[in-house]
Design a protein around this nucleic acid. Sequence first.
DNA 1: AACCTGGACAACCGCGAATAG
DNA 2: GCTATTCGCGGTTGTCCAGGT
Length: 368
Amino acid sequence: MGRSPCCEKVGLKKGRWTAEEDEILAKYIAANGEGSWRSLPKNAGLLRCGKSCRLRWINYLRSDLKRGNITKEEDEAIMKLHATLGNRWSLIAGHLPGRTDNEIKNYWNSHLGRRIDSFRRLGLDGGDAAVLDLGTLPGAGKRRGGRTSRSAARKNTIGGAVGRGQQGVVASPPVSLVQSDHSVVLDPDQNQASSVTNDGLVDANEEMASELLCCTSPMDGRLWGTDAEMEHVLLGPSEESLAGWGWPDQGDSGVMTSSEERGGGVPVTSGQEEGGATGLGVERGPELVTKGEEMVGSSSSQAEKLLDWDLEAMEAKLWDEAGEMWWHSELQDLGLHGLADGGYQEEPLGSWLIFSGTSLGDVTALGW
DNA sequence: AACCTGGACAACCGCGAATAG
DNA sequence: GCTATTCGCGGTTGTCCAGGT
């Protein structure tokens, strides 16, 4: 049985609300209160769907809404809450007075998600425990519109270009792993992961903790992780650790994930699992590629897909500053230049970073 | 100066849950 | 208990705008 539309759509206005419409809606609700959204537009004299009126009121016109930029404290709260609650935006919004679920969702998609995505890309660091301040990462700070830099010219979402609006990282929040309605967070004080439900912490699983990635410190809001964890961030947990955790089995589901559509080979769940449980996306990288191993064929190709850094822009910057592509010669020194199928020919800098084990610190020391 | 591009945010859409009749 | 309706949520798309080319 199909559902009847929430309201008669013929002749109804769509798109941006005008100031006049806002005024009519606000006055009507002030006089009659919220609710009865279906009949509201007709009674108020608005050519809008009741659903649209509700959205407009909840997300924009309500007097208790807090306007203005998300504060640093709110930013940190969102990070922490998302690590625990996942994409349950309404629940997160419930902890942030004056903020709407839509606002937080948009903020996450355009700010925090990208920051974490950047962190994950930068996290292939052979050094000590990586600790990055979110505020220092790309995407931090309020900014409106406009192109950013040369790096913006190349689409840098997971697996490459995605359709407008998909915003890449949305489907795979990296800070927690979910089985059904459980998510997993890591307590930096105890260095262990805990399984979390809506009701709160329910059990700790140290074995899982050793396998799971964690990038967010719930305590101070900074990205956090040991070398091993950073490796997991980029290369993914082991097959065994994911057993029973709803890892999307390519070919079984019959539903092509967005990454599969892109041919990326890095499965990403759609975010909302069948059956109502909100599933955080789980992203797993290719097999671990160890420095010093023979780097041929699919392994190195997979590593490059995983690493999908903005290598073109990075190369350009290094070229600008160093005046030469010295990594080419280093690859030659490693005896790797010229491999037909290594993948690095298209991204020699990426290959050099992988093969040489150059760390984030090394790259940033170069001014990147 | 005109066009292109990407970021930010508002709004829409579809679905499931809850509720009313 | 069944069906229709309403509500609320999360994902997605559309639009605006400003910086880059």
